[in-house]
Amino acid sequence: MTLTDLIAPAAIIPALKVNGKKQALQELAARAAELTGQSERAILEILLQREKLGSTAVGNGIAIPHGKLPKLGRLFGLFARLERPIDFEALDSQPVDLIFLLLAPEAAGADHLKALARVARMLRDPEVARKLRESSDTDALYAVLAMPQSSAA
C-alpha cells in the first residue's frame, strides 16, 4: 500500500514555517487551492468544520486534517513537514510536526473513508513517521510516502 495515488510531488512541503494550528490550516488551504483550483476559503472552511468536531491530530505528532469538497475532481492529498512543531490540540497533547491534508470529492463516499484510513494507518507506523521526520527535501519525503507500507514497517 502506498499513498502515491493520493499525492503528487508538487503537493509536498518539506519545511513549512507556521506558529500555530490556525496558521497551518490556512497555509495548507492556500497551497491546496493553488494546486486544485478550488476556493481557498471553501477549503479552509471545511477543514475548520472538521476540527470543530475534534482535533484531527491522531497522536505522535501527526495530524490529518480532511474534508469533502463538492466540486473537487478527485481525491487530493497534500503533505507538510513543519519546521517547528506546533500545538494541534492533540489527545496525547504532543505537538504536531507532520501534517497530511486529504480532500475528497463530495461523491467519493467509501473511497474517501478508505483513503483516510490508509493515510492514518500508514502514518501511524512509527517507522514511517521517523523516516518522514528525518527527510528534509521533497524527493526524500515523496519516496517515504511512496514506499509500500509492509516494507516501510
Partner: peptide, 18 residues
Amino acid sequence: DFFVPGEATLGALADIYG
C-alpha cells in the same frame, strides 16, 4: 483512525463522512 469527543453528534459526524 481518528478521534472525536463523545459529545460530538451523529449528525455532525454523518455530515463530514457521508
